Computed example of a mutant assay.
Amino acid sequence: MKKKSILIKEFHHKELVKISNVFGVPYGDLVQSMILYFKRTGINPVEAINENPATMVKALDKRIVSFLKVQERDILKPLRSESFQYSNEQKKQISELSTWIKDVVVKLNDYDNHRTKLITSELDKLEKKLERQQKAFIELAKLIDIKNKSGIKETLKSIFE
């Protein structure tokens, strides 16, 4: 490793020695660590404010908490309220739809019962007409074959039974 020298004011050299003694590190190693720290964090020591980092973190923490409270007030609470209202509207619509569906089912059942009665009534009418036609055929057979020699009357009766 090649050693290099840097020129700094005597006051800063004394400060560097004090800091290196506090941390228990040779000041050459301390300067290397400082360089790596500034490079890694992106902190510019020339522009650094002479504040304790813990104080800066507390201030930043207060800003973050304040920001989160504003987000909660302006976005999250209204969103929660809107979601609650939407959920209630959905429940109401489902309830109304359920009532509507029940009404439709009742009406369909009524319509089906009415239709069944009409069909049954028409079938009864047809059955009566068929019975009259059967009687008419048998009477015709009686007239055609008075003594029932051809057996037409019995044949018709067996067909209709």
Rank of each mutant, 00 (worst) to 15 (best):
61 D>F: 10
52 N>W: 01
77 K>T: 15
57 V>I: 12
63 R>I: 15
57 V>Y: 06
51 E>W: 05
59 A>Y: 00
73 R>H: 14
75 I>Y: 02
52 N>Q: 00
75 I>A: 11
70 V>G: 01
56 M>R: 13
66 S>A: 10
48 A>S: 05
63 R>D: 14
57 V>S: 08
64 I>L: 14
72 E>F: 12
56 M>D: 10
58 K>Y: 07
67 F>C: 10
64 I>R: 06
76 L>M: 03
60 L>Q: 06
65 V>N: 11
60 L>T: 07
64 I>F: 13
53 P>I: 13
70 V>T: 14
64 I>T: 04
55 T>E: 15
66 S>Q: 07
64 I>C: 05
57 V>M: 12
55 T>V: 15
62 K>L: 06
65 V>D: 06
55 T>N: 14
54 A>W: 10
72 E>T: 15
75 I>H: 11
57 V>T: 08
54 A>D: 03
69 K>H: 02
74 D>I: 04
56 M>Y: 06
62 K>A: 06
63 R>Q: 14
76 L>E: 01
76 L>S: 06
71 Q>E: 13
58 K>E: 04
57 V>G: 06
60 L>W: 10
50 N>K: 15
57 V>H: 02
55 T>Y: 13
52 N>S: 06
63 R>E: 14
61 D>E: 08
73 R>T: 11
62 K>M: 07
57 V>D: 05
74 D>S: 10
74 D>R: 06
51 E>K: 15
55 T>G: 13
61 D>K: 10
77 K>R: 15
61 D>Q: 08
60 L>N: 09
77 K>A: 06
75 I>S: 09
74 D>W: 00
63 R>L: 14
68 L>N: 09
55 T>S: 14
51 E>R: 14
69 K>A: 04
